[in-house]
Design a protein around this nucleic acid. Structure first.
Lengths: 253, 253
DNA sequence: GTTACCAACTTATTATAACAAGTTGTTAAA
DNA sequence: TTTAACAACTTGTTATAATAAGTTGGTAAC
């Protein structure tokens, strides 16, 4: 099933059946996977790879692009191409999200928060339905915040909060995570329904998270309900897919 | 924060501050998001875009690559570039995975299974520890199967099964999903611990799933335990990130 | 010693050009 | 009528070339 990829630089595309750039990126892939090039190490420069493989610059650049797309390398203009670190931090969904920050601190991870926006907005039909807002006046507080993990942007959080709650807790919400603030102010959450999915960074997200356009992202889209089954908040946590993952536990299977 | 991207084709890179390809891909992005180009619709050909934007082919191709990386378009050699369908199918983790197939059928989705390999193998240190296998004889059944959703490859499942179970249930396991087979044969599962993460397709996965190299994938890496807290199976379900998502529910928050 | 500048590296952008290869409809031969 | 070949489209591969822009270390001026 897997196309055989071997060193066949001195054949034509026709004879090879595999593009040169793929042939080369697979060779570099093996060097990375085998540990020949370790995480953080610098790959040979374009100029050096051109000499090694005897191909044009455009081919080498396509080969490098293949590695970047597989999440194995990152490029830095003026510096070089580096093997990426493939370790990830886990968000634990088995416990309450109230203790997410403490959970990460316990793992030796420094979490800080940067408020981007906090304002009353007219929401989309989608959000209005989810938060069960009056359709003649569909407003809610929209908060966008940036989560810095060890001082590096790692997650953009977009949260819609019921108007009365948002107004009352504005000061606290702008400085802390949503769930601990709600808990402390006696807005008890009974249930969280969520979707976990993949996306790719558009221009806005790529700038907030300081990643290239199209970088893989992990989205946690959730709605939190009270014991009376009323929605309190709806939001999306959009994390760098190369740095984070979710841990879930299913009991009484 | 967001770099302003406007029509500025007739300026130099220096004056523009934004690459031409990004300027163009953002204009096409807006046409897609606004619904001007609907899912499934064909984008103008490279030739037409070259005429419209008055730039070289390499720039148009980079602009299209930007859209593809954002998951908004797919290319077909000989046919054209098409707006992708962004709807997703949800795997429900709130219920038992025993009923996953039935759950999907209820949503009108046809699920079929194609066995790739089923064999006794010596496992890695990682798997040996997870399945608590004897370190002097770390063997288990390794099954790779392809899940077809509406006849299209959507998920590669890699499962390691305890030797005694794998041998006894070989025939059934090769034709059905793992969890229903275990349940029916009285290997009761009490608990599943899992990690959900993002990856990008390497060459092997891209060929199984018929997606381009680096395509975003969603990984569900799980270990299933009995009531006696003994591991039964360990596996990874690797799905197309553009087609699938996970639904989770957290109670007694 | 400190600063400013510059040379030499790095990757990024963009153009032109030629050929390969997949798709589709038309046209000509059987 | 069916089939085969081809023309005209599509995207994919690869080379060469020039300029832009980020990084780093050395060198000369202060």
């Amino acid at each position: 099933m897997v196309t055989s990829v071997t060193n066949s630089i001195n054949l034509t595309y026709k004879q090879r059946q595999v593009p040169l750039h793929l042939d080369i990126s697979e060779q570099l892939y093996q060097r990375i996977i085998s540990g020949d090039y370790l995480p953080g190490a610098k790959l040979p420069s374009e100029r050096e790879l051109i000499l090694e493989f005897q191909v044009s610059r455009i081919t080498i650049r396509k080969a490098i692009a293949n590695l970047v797309q597989q999440g194995l390398a990152i490029t830095h203009q003026g510096k070089g191409v580096f093997v990426s670190d493939r370790r990830k931090v886990a968000y634990n969904l088995s416990d309450s999200l109230i203790f997410l920050a403490e959970d990460l601190t316990r793992q030796g991870i420094e979490l800080s928060l940067q408020n981007i926006t906090f304002e009353l907005v007219t929401v989309s039909k989608e959000v209005q339905k989810t938060l069960q807002l009056k359709s003649n006046n569909p407003v809610a507080y929209l908060q966008k915040k940036l989560l810095l993990i060890d001082k590096v942007p790692g997650c953009v959080d977009i949260t819609y909060i019921l108007p009365n709650i948002g107004q009352k807790l504005a000061t606290e919400l702008e400085q802390e995570m949503t769930f601990p603030v709600l808990e402390r102010n006696n807005f008890k959450i009974d249930r969280v329904e969520a979707i976990i999915e993949c996306t790719n960074a558009n221009l806005e997200l790529s700038e907030y998270l300081d990643v290239p356009l199209g970088h893989p992202l992990l989205v946690y889209r959730h709605t939190a309900y009270t014991h009376q089954n009323l929605p309190l908040v709806y939001g999306e946590s959009i994390s760098r897919g190369d740095r984070f993952c979710y841990s879930v536990s299913q009991r009484r299977f």
